[in-house]
Amino acid sequence: MSTRADAGQPVEYSPSKVVEGNRYGWLFVYAVLYIAFLYVPPLFLPLFSFNDSIYVAFPIKGFTFEWYRQMAKSTGLLDALYNSLKVGAVVCLASTLFGMLAAKAMTRYTMPGKGPMASFIMLPLVVPGIILGIALLVLTNQVGLELSLFTIGVSHVLICVPFGMLVLISRLEGFDKSLEEASLDLGVNAWKTFWRVTVPLALPGIIASIMLTFLISFDEFILAFFLAGNEVTLPIYIWSQLRFPAKLPSVLALGTLILTVTMVLVAVAEWIRRRGTATTKPTAG
């Protein structure tokens, strides 16, 4: 297979190149298969969102914007989207704030029980979502709290803080601790030092944490399923609509839009991260 791939290209008569070519041939096939496995399934979303048929199946019938029109008219879907955005926005800010405080404590202070504390904060990551969901539901009932977007938001903060903390710990460990000491040494108090040195230098991490935790909240199903009241988030709404085949294409249309926005966000986040590392790495000299 690889030799045929080589044959199509301009041939270079170097023994080492031939060996490399063979190896790259296999790796190339592996890489293509892997990327296809990752990205082809999501591509069905845009494909069928423009397909002029209620049934999500081949062959493709024709091109239409009908499902996007239906989506825009479906108040239930738009309400759910709005709820998800609202919860996500609050959750990402809250969990990044808590994550930042935890990360600062973990990286900058020595205190008794630091190790156990870190594992404790990480615990929601390893507890199965369904267990956590039931536990929180029981707790909410005991406390007498009404199920609402608020209860969903609180549960999302619980699972998002570890992610925020991990992202920010790696960021805070990435820059020289003496930068903060220098600020203190120059007469600036700890609080102002946090805002003038720590936050600007951790900014790429803060943005990454905000985006990551937003996406986790936006995407989260199990906890929302247990803790939702009358108002539902988007994943719950989509799941409830799967029973009605006629509604599915407009869900695909929404999915396509979310996919597009997500890809743009990820690209922006990566760009910010790269700019961040370029400006905080000191040049040797």
Binding site: F175, L179, E181, P200, T279, K281, P282
Partner: peptide, 9 residues
């Protein structure tokens, strides 16, 4: 400081 700790931002 030994590392100079020049604020990179």
């Amino acid at each position: 400081f030994q590392s100079y700790a020049i604020f990179p931002h």
